[in-house]
Design a protein around this nucleic acid. Sequence first.
DNA 1: AATTAGCACTCTAAGGGTGGGAGTGCTGGA
DNA 2: TCCAGCACTCCCACCCTTAGAGTGCTAATT
Lengths: 342, 342
Amino acid sequence: MSSERQLDVLRAIVQDYVRSREPVGSRNLVERHNLGVSPATIRNDMAALEDSGYIAQPHTSAGRIPTDKGYRMFVDQISSLKPLSTAERRAITGFLEGAVDLDDVLERSVRLLAQFTQQVAVVQYPSLRRSALRHVELVPISTTRLMVVIITDTGRVEQRVVEMPEELDSAVLGELRARINALGAGRELPGLRTALDGLEDVFEPHERTMVTEVTKAVLDTVGEDVEERIVMAGTANLARSDTDFTRTITPVLEALEEQVVLMRLLADMAEEAATTELAVRIGHETSSERLSETSVVAGGYGGTGADAIAQVGVLGPTRMDYPNTMAAVRAVARYLSRILSA
Amino acid sequence: MSSERQLDVLRAIVQDYVRSREPVGSRNLVERHNLGVSPATIRNDMAALEDSGYIAQPHTSAGRIPTDKGYRMFVDQISSLKPLSTAERRAITGFLEGAVDLDDVLERSVRLLAQFTQQVAVVQYPSLRRSALRHVELVPISTTRLMVVIITDTGRVEQRVVEMPEELDSAVLGELRARINALGAGRELPGLRTALDGLEDVFEPHERTMVTEVTKAVLDTVGEDVEERIVMAGTANLARSDTDFTRTITPVLEALEEQVVLMRLLADMAEEAATTELAVRIGHETSSERLSETSVVAGGYGGTGADAIAQVGVLGPTRMDYPNTMAAVRAVARYLSRILSA
DNA sequence: AATTAGCACTCTAAGGGTGGGAGTGCTGGA
DNA sequence: TCCAGCACTCCCACCCTTAGAGTGCTAATT
């Protein structure tokens, strides 16, 4: 279907277009890459590539632009990523090792990734579905209000304030905390409901409403239906990268603000990344209208393959520098994994 | 220096310009506002206003545009804000009462405000300088790592992981937690250092390194030099509002991303808002080059006047609808105050 | 003294025509 | 299979022109 040289041509077109952002013609192509043949020959290859749907021309008598399918082919052809320079790696370690808690680690990672790639970076918090309970703390806030603080083995700290129907009894509270921790600590969060199942029965009948309220709060906070959290950085890079704002940037900003689109996309990509370390979605592959000119590169961290605890990624125009972006994402994902497992 | 009618003219110019985003001329002005005089008269007033620096023309033979000074005059002339409609107020209460913790309250508030004003909204977390300690919890994470969780009376939950030089002793840990809480609970955070001063002396010499590490972590986390946190929403509105992207939007996005600029600005404005309930900075008054075409409206919440615990605000182009924006900010600030004091 | 009609003037933004240039596809020969 | 040459297409940048909106000034009016 496509000769070896045609693949070379496609590769060259992608590279040049990423550089120049302008349709690339046969003449310039042979000048910049030593393909060893004349422009006319390239034109034939281009015609073939266009027939196969890998490239397109904005209008007759313009150069060619890669299509989503073309980028896909290009990405799939990449066999190995060249590792980051030592300077870059030093930047990562230096920047990340100063972090004091999970929020801080994620915040720094995402900023770093945004700066490296000059695009929008995003990181998921460790999924609650893949975390276990470390500790539950019950802190009275007033006579009838209680703050439930939940700490997971992945370092997440979640909180919730519960309004109690009656006054709090600190002795009962202490016992409740001890029992919840005894029953729940170390458990995977999705299984927490069953772990805490018969908890009420241990308490006196008049104490049970409190017990029910608290367990309900705990399960609500880390339950199956809680949405994942994400952090972003580099939205300003969006504006820098492109000139055609209204059409491309605005919808992307909107999608980012809603977050839901992105969270689902990352969840989808997690499955892919389980086998390949990195997942790439190009243009329409994001299956979101508003991201139809956007590509996403994501990789799991905090566990290899299917054990990954969450995703980091980068989001940019379909005409991004895939090799470098992929290398950066992979590097940050690996460093994140290392730091979190320490 | 300026007659009553000239003020009317200025007001009319501001209103029309905010609506149309186009320089407003004398003819249109008299048509839309019944000023009772002819265009020629208005032109004289306009010339006077221009001499005084309240308006300017983009080029000869164009209409007039308000200057920062003009907007300032306009805003200072506003004597009373018309309250929100009942529908809007209902939206606020309905949306905010579902919140389960501080993060949630702030998140919802800022989104609501962004949606109301169709601009960028921002809210500070309650300042640690103005919060008191509610509770400190020490959760062992491994044999040598400890998570310090700090809860303030304003509902903030801060955390930090501490690496210990030696193995943790749970009995000592329990005592340390009890003593920190006994000494610190209820204290204003800025005074926490002195409150915990002689803490080490109570412990055995070999336990003291641990005590020092933990108190250091506590003080580092809520100390004077910790930067304030802010949350934003509505950045996508930026792109919607304006057409001249590269010049106005990009620098604003960059400034927002850095956050530092904005945090300092809000801190500055807090002092103003202490006496006037709302503070407004127009264009260059933000004293940031990148925000030179941006205005900020902010108000304190969680305490009246100088007791305010933090700021909420809205950020938009200098040609924003000041009355409505100010009304929205004030409303959200008041609701926030009410909810947090409950 | 303030207001206003009239008028000449200025400047922009939009429309329309033009030419250069880049790029293509095709054909016929090596 | 490759490639030189060529006719063709189409965009884009440029210039020119014009319509329109708005101004400032002057002289007349209230």
